[in-house]
Design a protein around this nucleic acid. Structure first.
Lengths: 218, 218
DNA sequence: AATTTTTATTAGTCTTACCTAATTTTTAAT
DNA sequence: ATTAAAAATTAGGTAAGACTAATAAAAATT
């Protein structure tokens, strides 16, 4: 079994590996975790001993297969719990993350799979990030913003970028949630606002700012 | 905020206070937690400092109002999560406890209430124990075993005493779960077996041993 | 009342996961 | 190639929460 701290390190290393092309430095991990670099040295050594990462000063940090597997399971649980909190318990988009940070460390062999099934095998979490499957597969993310969609295209809401309360309230009012289908009807050149069809019969116009903060996938 | 350890101490003290009429000794806490008495001394001192318990060597340990409140919230979360795991995720009766031991320590102000609502405000957990309400009220438990019910009486399944797999499987087969209504039709004097009506139309006979392990309330 | 047994406490360690401050190593810039 | 800056490491420390072994205090037994 792995401690909460170990899991958090693996998760951060996984995330950093996704984002940047460059090597993952000890310092970047320290920053991401808000920890002192000296603390990170200790933990990296421990993770190397446990064969969860590879680490060479000049080459940076890399997850081993074993380490990646654990990281992915933690990420999987995090995102599944986020869906649960949002869809089943009625939390707001911006509230789910902190609770999921705790829930992701609950240990039980069957938990993730049972939760996944209960939620209907969701593909994306409320922030539009793909949920790793039980076997560790994770969808490549073709997530863009509504603003980047071209005329006539149809897409599904995958999440939000901004979690500002007024934005979220506005979404609620428009009855837009995860999975909601949106068709881009027309882009207005003048101010970049977009005419969209929400679901099957609600036609409305949204601003550029709005469109830039709504994550979608085709 | 209180640490996981603190919460576990408060929970154990709460539980010990319910069961025994005698004073709660440091030793009994040590036993319940499988900790060394020396460790318990340290923690009790800490809890006294935080005004969560009262402690005098000769009088034993008592929760303060503040301490009881926290203990009850932990117990509430534990039992709600047990219901969730059983009813929503499909865990077996004997699997839910260990996972709930972890889940009960998830901190969020709204969590218990939202979970409670989602589950339809259940009264009892899968072990037949009453679930404390948001305000800390907890039902007095009139939980008995089916064996103690008299002829003609109607009751509801509150939980199980034994969590033996074959017993649980048998329950499943009979379609008996939490809240299932059972009417005691007749008690057979010869071997103390009981003829019951499960739900509205399934009439069957169960053994004395069976009846002694099924917790019910009227 | 004296003694034994049980209960509680102290003193000193250990592990985990952090920290600061000082130093070394590596990389980048002149 | 030197030097300055950034990154990594070492050494030593802290807090939480557990431990063992030894001792003191209370309760129970004879």
């Amino acid at each position: 079994m792995h401690s909460l701290s170990e899991e958090n390190y693996l998760k951060v290393i996984y995330r950093l590996a996704l984002v940047g092309k460059e090597k993952i430095s000890l310092t970047s991990i320290a920053e991401a975790l808000n920890n002192n670099p000296a603390s990170v040295v200790d933990m990296l050594r421990k993770l190397v001993d446990k064969k969860l990462i590879q680490y060479e000063k000049t080459k940076g940090v890399k997850l081993t297969d074993k380490g990646r597997k654990i990281a992915l399971q933690v990420v999987r649980k995090h995102r599944l719990w986020e869906v649960f909190l949002l869809e089943k318990l009625g939390y707001a988009w911006d509230e789910v993350h902190d609770i999921a940070e705790q829930l992701e460390h609950i240990h039980d062999l069957q938990l993730a799979d049972k939760l996944d099934k209960f939620l209907g095998f969701p593909q994306y979490d409320p922030h539009g990030d793909p949920i790793p499957k039980a076997n560790g597969e994770i969808a490549v993310m073709y997530k863009t913003t509504l603003a980047e969609m071209s005329d006539g295209k149809s897409c599904q809401v995958a999440g939000v970028k901004d979690t500002n309360a007024s934005f979220l309230q506005y979404l609620k009012k428009l009855d837009i949630g995860i999975g909601t289908k949106i068709i881009v009807i027309e882009k207005i050149l003048f101010d970049n606002s977009i005419v969209i069809m929400i679901g099957k019969n609600i036609k409305t116009t949204v601003s550029k700012v709005f469109a830039e903060n709504l994550l979608v996938h085709e």
